[in-house]
Simulated scan of single mutants.
Amino acid sequence: MTATAVEEVAQALLTARRERVPCNAERFATTLVDAAEAYAVQDAVARGLGETFPGHWKSGGPGREQPLTHAALPAAGVWASPAVAADWPFHLRLIEAEVALRLGADVTPAQAEALTQANAPSLIDAMTVSIELVDSRWRQGPQAPPLLKLADLQSHGALVLGDWRPFAPRDWAQQALTVRIGDRPAERFRGTHALGDPAWLLPQWLRHATRGGATVPRGTVVTTGTWCGLLEAQAGDAVDVEFDGIGRASVQL
């Protein structure tokens, strides 16, 4: 791992956050060589923002056969629903409707290493509807190189969380949800999570979160990937997401 490369990208991202002006990804298109360096940038940005061990994460991927990605989320951009985000410095406003899960117990590195998709859900005590607002510190936005997007918290902007309810097994293949954005017609989805089950990612996420030897504390939250793809929104739009039988969340942009 090249410390200079990690520091250069981290400083560019911190400057973009501080000055609220996206930076040019072309300058760093080949700076990072692998995911380990991108995650090191995430860690450096967190230190620069004064973040300690995160209470909120995002994790997910396009399918079970492909590597998942993970990012710890800055606390300042995590809000309870109904949220008002009109003053938040967005460059993009892309919407992902998700389900967030909350740990009901501490998880040590040894426990994380032993987890399977079958037993990991027993660690979850609650779930809620979440809205991830996707944004970028790169001028190129979604077209930035994949490692630079991963370094930029996998293009995370903010997270809105609904009311918590006890976690219980569900028929996720039949899970329905409705997304409303501004004055557009409501969009309906069913069984559209890329992993089939949002809890499927728990072992990989927890191994990543404990990779430095830390224990992930009870109450830590992970949002688990989109059910609606990326939907465009504009400043001034009201966004409302409702998962049948789970709840709803909303944000005013």
Rank of each mutant, 00 (worst) to 15 (best):
D106V: 11
R139G: 08
R137H: 10
D152N: 12
L153G: 11
A110Q: 15
E65V: 09
T69G: 10
L115V: 12
L150I: 11
T116G: 12
P146Q: 14
H70I: 06
P121G: 06
S130N: 12
T116L: 13
L147N: 13
A168I: 04
K149P: 03
P121L: 12
N119L: 11
P109Y: 10
R170D: 00
R188N: 00
G104I: 06
A105N: 14
D87T: 15
G141N: 03
K149D: 02
I124V: 15
L101Q: 00
T128F: 05
A97Y: 00
W172D: 03
H156D: 00
V78N: 07
E113W: 12
Q66V: 05
A83P: 13
L103F: 12
K149M: 11
E96R: 00
A126D: 01
L133M: 03
A100T: 02
V78C: 15
A85Q: 05
A85M: 12
S130P: 10
Q174V: 09
P74W: 01
A105E: 15
V179F: 01
P142I: 09
P169E: 12
P142Y: 02
G182S: 15
V129G: 06
L153R: 10
L177T: 03
L101H: 08
L161F: 08
S130Y: 00
A118I: 11
T178W: 01
S155F: 05
R180L: 05
P185E: 11
Q140R: 02
D125V: 04
L148D: 03
A112Q: 11
H156R: 04
P185D: 13
W138C: 10
T128G: 06
A126L: 03
D171R: 05
T69E: 06
L103G: 09
P166D: 09
D87E: 15
A83E: 08
D183V: 05
P109V: 07
F167G: 01
